[in-house]
């Protein structure tokens, strides 16, 4: 996509020369590109940034949200580091300054070929949005041997898989089945596959499907207990979190269920309404300015400091003692989110 038809023609030719011989469609405006994306499934969008009416950042922002499966490349002649940062903040795959010589053109072609090839060679994109069960099942059903390292905020866990069976797990002080159950209970996180360690001593002897079933049952039971006694269970995670040094109050709200829990607050309704409104206003402002997703809001007052953040479905408002340095509060906030997840 580029507003200059000559540039479009040149790059259409360059892309058509790629070894995978992709079919190329072009658009001279953002609105035209949007119509084309509605009509047909594309694998890759290459988008110029400097465009009239709807600029490239606007287009990429919409495409990343509406068509997350499409790989995106921002492409510009504007040599400005800020646009690179903003484009990556929107979640694009690659940022390129328009090539100016033959060598750069060749590199650009190679990168495009690699982007187009990745989908075919490495399966589906966005595997990180799959649950841990899906990932373990994939590994085990393909009889793989690997070491999965799962990170959930400040917490890390490892699961050893040998010839399609889970043989060991470890997180913190836990090992074996208890460690596997603990990792299994994490709602979100990231994972990476490391080379297998065949010499790892086996501590788990159950078949993987039995192990997964058992963990799911344990989780279901704990959930149903939570539903029967919501007040008691709602308080417990906050009780643990409020033990973190420096926390004065804590308010957590599930964005989906609208259920809110708090600790240490005299007027949770008003503070809750304020934090919700703040997060929503600045989320919308971030979208308008095209600067990526809101990360965190920090407030300082005469009595205390406060952190507002969205973490997954949860919205948090945490009050801190005024004496804590800002850097420490940032670190402790990460700990709060990680502990909540676990």
């Amino acid at each position: 996509m580029d507003d200059d038809p000559d540039v479009l023609e040149t790059y259409r030719d360059l892309i058509a020369q790629l070894p995978s011989k992709p079919e190329v469609d072009t658009a001279t405006s953002g609105s035209r590109a949007m119509v084309m994306l509605e009509d047909r499934a594309y694998r890759l969008l290459i988008c110029d940034l400097k465009m009239p009416k709807m600029d490239g950042l606007q287009v990429l922002s919409i495409v990343r949200r509406k068509y997350p499966q499409i790989r995106t490349v921002a492409f510009t002649a504007v040599q400005d580091e800020q646009f690179r940062t903003r484009a990556y903040a929107l979640g694009i795959d690659q940022f390129w300054y328009k090539p100016t010589n033959e060598q750069e053109i060749k590199l650009f072609q190679e990168c495009l070929e690699s982007l187009l090839g990745q989908e075919v060679e490495t399966g589906f994109r966005g595997v990180q949005s799959k649950s841990l069960v899906d990932i373990i099942q994939l590994e085990c059903m393909s009889q793989s041997s690997s070491l999965l390292r799962i990170t959930n905020g400040a917490l890390t866990g490892k699961i050893w898989i040998l010839d399609g069976e889970v043989v060991d797990a470890e997180t913190g002080d836990l090992r074996g089945e208890p460690a596997f159950q603990k990792i299994f209970s994490w709602h979100a996180g990231t994972f990476e596959t490391l080379p297998a360690e065949p010499s790892r001593p086996r501590t788990i002897f159950k078949p993987y499907n039995g192990l997964l079933l058992e963990c799911a049952q344990v989780l279901d039971e704990s959930r149903s207990r939570a539903e029967q006694a919501p007040a008691k269970v709602d308080d417990s995670p906050l009780a643990a979190l409020s033990q973190i040094e420096g926390i004065e109050f804590l308010l957590a709200r599930n964005g989906d269920s609208k259920h809110q829990v708090n600790r240490g607050l005299e007027n949770p309704k008003r503070i809750g309404a304020w934090s919700r409104q703040c997060l929503e206003n600045f989320r919308a402002l971030g979208e308008r300015l095209q600067v990526g997703q809101l990360e965190q809001i920090e407030g300082t007052g005469p009595q205390r400091q406060v952190t507002l953040a969205r973490h997954g479905k949860m919205e948090f408002c945490v009050g801190w003692k005024n004496s804590l340095p800002v850097e420490e509060i940032r670190e402790l906030s990460k700990k709060v989110f990680a502990l909540w997840d676990s």
Binding site: N267, Q277, V291, G299, G301
Partner: peptide, 27 residues
């Protein structure tokens, strides 16, 4: 407008603030 509203409503919720820092990935 967003900043002023946040300061005002924080004060109304008995959480007076004198400073706000909003973090985005690129701003």
């Amino acid at each position: 407008r967003n900043i002023l509203t946040s300061f005002r409503e924080a004060a109304a919720a008995h959480l007076p603030l004198s400073e706000l820092v909003i973090h985005y990935p690129s701003l």
